[in-house]
Amino acid sequence: MIDLLINVTLLTFLAITAVAMVRMTDLFAIIMLFGIFSLLTAGLFVVMDAADVAFTEAAVGAGISTMLMLATLALIKAHQEKKPLGRRPWLPLVVVTVTGAALVYGTTDISNFGDPLAPPHTHVAPYYIEQSMADTGVPNMVTAVLASYRGFDTLGEVAVVFTAGVAVLLLLGSRRKKNNSTVDKEDSNDS
């Protein structure tokens, strides 16, 4: 009962935040609402007993990405979103309605939350639940799966994070001034 109440409250706030983000034009407020949206999502994950996912969502979604978007906002001049051009609003509306209807139709095929007979819960999940402690000695099953059983996947994820860092460095890393001074000289001047 209390779970239902929390879920309804969180989802209501989530919907209100989403609508507010669409309606607003002040970019600073929209970024703040993005952070609130992530935090509410993290709350929903906690209610669904996915503490690890909630942790990541709160740290990355509400924390770091809000920070990075604010940093980007500080770089750009316009703090107001431009008003969209008023022509042919029916086309995006049709696309959004059809996509939304397809997604809602898709949810009817998803098994119920916590259904023990659902296909994902009858494949390898029972093995992890029964054997992960004996195999790895790690009480947190999520860590056991991420770090040990699916270690190769996690290596790929770390490689993705590293690649993203390299890409940002290539695009934004060197801080050239107008007089084309070298980066090394500039760094020594700055410090």
């Binding site: 980007t72 500080a74 994070v161 940002v168 934004l172 801080r175 700055d190």
Partner: peptide
């Protein structure tokens, strides 16, 4: 990498 992100973004505004 997170710090590289932040330093790269924040460093440009100077």
């Amino acid at each position: 990498v997170m710090l590289i992100f932040f330093f790269s973004f924040a460093g440009r505004s100077r």
